[in-house]
Amino acid sequence: MSTPEVTDGALIERVANQEREAFEELYGRYARPVLGLALRRIGDRGRAEDSVQEVFAAVWRSASSYDPARGPGGAWVYTIARNAIIDNLRRRPAPTVADPPEAVSTSPTPDEEAEASWNTWRVHRALETLPASERAVIDLAYFSGLSQSEIAEFLHVPLGTVKTRTRSGLARLADVLEGEV
């Protein structure tokens, strides 16, 4: 990217001052990670979409409680989102079907589930930071199942360009994942 991105923490501090533009920027960065987290926890798409609205209402209300000394902005948004989604689930628990008594559960433990949710959140947030050219090849390679040569054909660019963009996209994601988010 040609210009350094404003940190999430700086945006949250501006949201605390009721700056609509900062709120919209934060929404652009986190709407899809929040929806992904809500879908994972709630399951039902309609309720998950409702909870996205609730999460960002909570972000707007609570931004003044953000303390940069206690951690990066991304982790704060994650905590707000997780709590709002749990509140949504408490208000209207998802219907459950009892396991047969003899069945052995293969579901992840709460700790495993929490770690998986956090990692998914971080990856989805990091994807939002990629330039469009790198985002396209990463999406096509990892989420559409296209080979490198199929991507080259699809995007009408040389195979070497696809490989370079995929590699640089991975490196940029690694930088973000190791950084603030």
Binding site: Y27, R32, L170
Partner: peptide
């Protein structure tokens, strides 16, 4: 090594969901 870690994280995370039109813009306060 670190690119491999990122590669594995991408695979386990899966694609981020598409936002429906109703969520494309930030909600009004």
């Amino acid at each position: 090594v670190r690119l491999r870690t990122t590669h594995d994280l991408l695979l386990s995370a899966g694609p981020p969901p598409e936002l429906p039109p109703s969520l494309e813009a930030a909600p009004a306060q």
